[in-house]
Design a binder for these strands. Sequence first.
DNA 1: AAAGTATGTGACCACTCACTCACTTAAGGT
DNA 2: ACCTTAAGTGAGTGAGTGGTCACATACTTT
Lengths: 198, 198
Amino acid sequence: MRKSAELRKAEIVVTVLDLADRIGPDRVTTGAAAAAVGVSQAAVFRHFPTKAAMWLAVADHMTEELTSAWQRALAGAGDPVGRLEALVAAQLGEIAAKPALPMLLFSRELNVGNDDLRAAFRRLLMTFQGLIVAEIARGQEARCLRRDVDPADAAVLAISLVQGMAIRWSLGARDFALVEEGLRLLRVQLRLLAAKGD
Amino acid sequence: MRKSAELRKAEIVVTVLDLADRIGPDRVTTGAAAAAVGVSQAAVFRHFPTKAAMWLAVADHMTEELTSAWQRALAGAGDPVGRLEALVAAQLGEIAAKPALPMLLFSRELNVGNDDLRAAFRRLLMTFQGLIVAEIARGQEARCLRRDVDPADAAVLAISLVQGMAIRWSLGARDFALVEEGLRLLRVQLRLLAAKGD
DNA sequence: AAAGTATGTGACCACTCACTCACTTAAGGT
DNA sequence: ACCTTAAGTGAGTGAGTGGTCACATACTTT
């Protein structure tokens, strides 16, 4: 079954992501990816000039997925605190659905010799941080959140929570409900951040 | 220069840690480690039966280093909150001194086919968490910290902060003072956790 | 000084990696 | 039906991997 280059490229990208989760990002060889797609190893290089380019395509794909998840989250809630919870829930949901994401942040593929890939991921995380900071600032203006904390600091606390939960989840046996447990702790944190007079 | 096996083993262990930081844990081949030590690749296998055993020795080394750093931290402060800050500062300091530590948590070496190594690191992190929980509970008993938060939850918030800072620091260009910035944010978090009537 | 032992070596093994290239074959327009 | 074109292939490449082996060299003990 021959497919168009566009279809095949997309197929390779999602297969690589799935494979990265199952066997680890650094174990995703061009041969393993090709076998999982059902094609010869040489065929991979017909669609991507190098392995690094293949990973870059994966990063593009994830950028789109995450961006749209964030937008859905922002659209689904009416108040800043609700949007904050929705953003975090969306992020945890994406991680739970594609556990390769946190693993990728520390993979050799990303950290050694693929500066473009590294930059792509950093851009992603900074975009997320920007969204969080904005909602926290809005929450403070609306007097829902205490104003004696720098929004940027509060955002780091919230984002660290997401990352810390992801690490606990990945390093353990993924033996708890990431989204639920993460949201529970976010609400603990939000209670600490709540304006005093409520 | 011939050295005793004990010395050579220790030399290999610290070299591997240093190399893991500079080129990434998964790039540490037996050959690279040998070259960095200044010895033939085969000599490595005179001291460690397998590469996995070499990493296990690295884990033992780090366990000792971290444990003693924690003990120094606990001994150096008088009150629970001070000990909390000291513990976090110690942990951040160790990470700053050996940046390979967080990378190791997600390396292929640890996550694939070396269950002993994985277990060793998990034990380490759980020990740290235990220390944090204990100090938070003590702080609550002493009425320094608000008591309407589960100590375990508060500990997760604090540990996530450490991990989140480490990620930010690693993923960026390590372009801020990890210990100072981490401590600053910990104090923000501790202010949120402080007992209301102070 | 001889004998024994621990540390180290260079050549080599079977295997995997990313990547190349001459070639075949199927799809799509005319 | 034919022909162009692009997707796909089999068989390689050199570089690197963890690990082994027979052998050499430096210390220690007798």
